[in-house]
């Protein structure tokens, strides 16, 4: 642990609402972990001067794309990184233990909770398990290659005709999901089979507590009601995202390398 340069990465693209959410999340992180180092990837036009001192780095000029998060994830300046979606908040100082939870793994994710997510059946034997909102990873070259390939393959996945693509043997409903791309890379691409991946803290959802689990009317939530979140994950209301200085994707900057 000592001597390691560990930190947190946020990516805010497309709408100022994501930027503002990332700032709120960063403030909550600093409140609970004052020594936290943070890097924000965003668009220059979003940045407010008063927020600059919160971060170790603010990196602008990122691609205008719904999945530009992969751009930021791949460019983390830290040895161990926790990527956090913008629409998260830190509720507890337990966050300072997060980097120890990587252990000897290369990359760890929080689990998808099936009843608060859409159907994620990949094929008869497999379903998506890794949530993309909170990702803990190291900076080994193979891990970084994996993340770069994640973006490139994802672009291929969403643009190619499914039945003619390399994904044709899998459920076509997987086409929009970047979590499927990650699953494909980890399970179907030989060079990434040596990547050690798993769940953060054996899948304890306090590290990515989805707000829908608070709904007391849903009996499936009963098993989660005693969990005290460390990372709370909400969703920004659509109206606010749409109102928030949307930058229209020009359609060209898809090559992030």
């Amino acid at each position: 642990m000592s001597g390691e340069n560990n930190g947190f990465v946020y990516v805010a693209s497309l709408s100022k609402a994501y930027y503002k959410a990332a700032i709120r999340s960063a403030v909550s992180l600093k409140d609970n972990f004052p020594q936290a180092k943070m890097t924000l990837f965003t668009h220059e036009e979003f940045v407010d001067e008063s927020d600059v001192s919160l971060f170790e780095n603010i990196i602008t000029g990122i691609p205008v794309h719904i999945r530009s998060k992969m751009y930021g994830i791949a460019r983390s300046p830290y040895d161990k990184t926790l990527y956090l979606d913008s629409d998260t908040e830190i509720y507890s100082d337990e966050i300072k233990n997060i980097f120890d939870l990587l252990e000897d793994y290369d990359i760890k994710f929080s689990p998808i909770i099936s009843h608060v997510s859409k159907s994620r059946q990949i094929n008869d034997d497999n379903q998506l398990e890794y949530h993309g909102g909170v990702i803990l990873y190291n900076n080994k070259p193979l891990t970084i290659n994996l993340i770069n390939d994640w973006y490139e393959l994802y672009l291929q996945q969403i643009t190619e005709k499914w039945h003619l693509s390399k994904f044709k043997d899998f459920n076509p409903s997987m086409q929009p999901w970047d979590q499927f791309t990650m699953w494909y890379l980890l399970h179907c691409v030989d060079k990434y089979k040596q990547i050690k991946s798993g769940f953060i803290d054996q899948g304890n959802i306090k590290w990515n507590y989805i707000y829908l689990l608070e709904d007391k009317d849903n009996p499936k939530n009963d098993q989660y009601k005693h969990i005290d979140p460390v990372i709370y994950h909400y969703t920004i209301p659509r109206k606010i995202v749409d109102e928030g200085s949307i930058i229209k994707p020009p359609g060209s900057p898809t090559d992030i390398r």
């Binding site: 403030v27 909550s28 409140d31 609970n32 008063s50 908040e89 509720y91 709370y232």
Partner: peptide, 18 residues
């Protein structure tokens, strides 16, 4: 609001978040 954003009362800020 800057006064709230920059407040050092972490406990109350966490309560507000929750």
């Amino acid at each position: 609001i800057d006064l709230i954003k920059n407040s050092s009362n972490r406990e109350l800020k966490n309560k507000l978040r929750r």
